[in-house]
Design a protein around this nucleic acid. Structure first.
Lengths: 161, 161
DNA sequence: TCTCCTGAGTCTACAATCCAGACTCAGAGG
DNA sequence: CCTCTGAGTCTGGATTGTAGACTCAGGAGA
């Protein structure tokens, strides 16, 4: 992505912007960390609490928000001979956050991790590494200078400058 | 990304996790919104303030953090015949956040926007749409069931279960 | 039966942030 | 000299966050 030219105002209003809507749901440090744990397969209240050391009341609060957003769900389950437990699995909507999270991870690996990547994604069948990329319909990677942002006319705000 | 199997603890500690490090830098609603505006090309204090309606003291604070992280920089500049002004452009490190942001936008379009996308990315040369995807080295899209997470041994934490 | 343990929370009192809105300050322009 | 603009800082009340204790229910073990 190349450096954008100067603008005085976003061409899409916050109200119409799906990016800002998603920040409202998950744009909070604890929420993001809870989701990180969830991607590793954690599902239980106390496990989340211990894993990221979040205050219990905050965890309770954030889980409620994630459930309300439809990103996680609350489910009672019972293992044989055990009492009922509660688990918080990701919904399909939540699982779909995997891609943005992988992209963030790659960014972190490059700019914060000194190039080290604790985690990589690989193909089970071919063993090839996977990476997140901006590609066209044929799978060709986009070149920074060839990318054009197009705003759907019905969302576009009059440009002040 | 398929549903992960139950775990009790993240296999990579928060300390080693580049994802959680990046959340520390930008995992905050205002910071994320400031970056969104920056991707549209906004660069000036008052413009950010008006665009997302952030309290001035918070904006000041968040910009300082972004500069300290190396995501933005503070630069004085002077247009002909004007007094010196200050601008906050994205650094290359900041511009590299474009990909995660595009991935989040696509997620928001799908799950929050009722399928409407105010913004699309297109190739200037071929006119094809670009999208964010997990691809192998040849540009073939990954299938959810074919993805394997590999943890670099020196980062892996003993598994409790 | 009585007691202990665990999972899943809630409650409380104190601390840290946030926020709206007023204020400051310097350099043009009229 | 007065006003405007950009780029902030300051203030004090309102909101959130935090650590840690507490609750409550259902098994398990003695």
């Amino acid at each position: 992505m190349a450096a954008p030219s100067l603008r005085r105002r976003s061409p899409v209003s916050l109200r119409d912007c799906n990016l800002s809507k998603s920040f409202e749901l998950i744009g909070d440090r604890w929420t993001l960390l809870i989701l990180r744990s969830a991607f590793w397969g954690l599902r239980r209240f106390d496990d989340f609490q211990a894993d990221i050391d979040v205050p219990r009341s905050v965890l309770s609060n954030r889980l409620a928000g994630l459930i309300e957003s439809g990103i996680m769900e609350r489910r009672e389950y019972r293992e044989a001979g055990q009492r009922a437990r509660v688990e918080y699995p990701l919904t399909r909507m939540g699982q779909a956050l995997g891609l943005p999270f992988m992209a963030m991870t790659a960014w972190g690996d490059k700019w914060l991790g000194g190039g080290t990547s604790p985690l990589t994604l690989r193909s089970k069948s071919t063993g090839q590494k996977f990476s997140v990329a901006l590609v066209d319909e044929g799978g060709r990677r986009a070149k920074g200078s060839d990318i054009e942002m197009v705003i759907a006319p019905r969302f576009e705000r009059k440009r002040r400058r």
